[in-house]
Nucleic acid binder design. Structure first.
Lengths: 107, 107
DNA sequence: ATCCTAGGTTACGATTCGTAACCGGAAAGG
DNA sequence: CCTTTCCGGTTACGAATCGTAACCTAGGAT
């Protein structure tokens, strides 16, 4: 269960949906590097876990909107905290990696 | 980066290390279902990112202790929040899954 | 006729994961 | 002696997952 919620795409998707309902293409544009397939799979997983709702408008071309459920909104709090921690500490994480990799180089 | 930090085993490991230094076997016993290999890989990843330190005591049999760095301790706050959310909402998540799977059954 | 749209599925190669076996060297038990 | 036990780690290999790219739907616009 933790595996799915801690998942990279799930976290980014929940962060995206935190400021309101979004359609599929908006999410795809907003989440850097996500493929159509991965976004579809992620959204299905979140829907399955009762975290988002999926609403289809049968127009041509189709329109699909995703919204956080109350349960999803309650998850939004810790998820955003985690996301912010990562962005805030990204430079330090990358520096640590460079140090580690450089030290491992001396083999 | 998010991928590694949101990772299931990383989260559980950081939660384990939150109440102090632990040795390898303690972590393995405390983290339900983790294999030796996965724990090793997870700890190396956390060490690489500067979140834990690894200290080897060259005795026979060997002893290895893992400790959260200051950076790791700062991550501990949002990670524990996420972990607690999951355990608190586990019943509701499982219920949602059952509903979703039952509805999908009607094909 | 052809292209464009938005969301989704399929096929397939590339990673990653998990299980299980094995390793080290000293020390304790038979 | 010979075997077993200790702990942390590595290796091998099959299974699951991920990511890229192609294709699909059907109507409206060019």
């Amino acid at each position: 269960m933790l595996a799915k919620i801690g998942d990279k795409w799930s976290i980014l998707t929940i962060m995206m949906l935190s400021d309101g309902t979004k359609r599929f293409s908006e999410l795809q544009r907003g989440i850097d590097g996500v493929s159509q397939r991965m976004l579809t799979l992620t959204l299905r997983g979140l829907e399955r876990d009762g975290l988002v709702t999926r609403e289809v408008f049968p127009t041509i071309p189709p329109r699909v909107e995703y919204t956080l459920t109350p349960l999803g909104r309650s998850l939004q709090v810790p998820v955003i905290a985690l996301g912010q921690w990562v962005t805030a500490n990204l430079p330090e994480l990358e520096a640590a990696r460079r140090r580690f990799d450089a030290a491992a180089e001396e083999a």
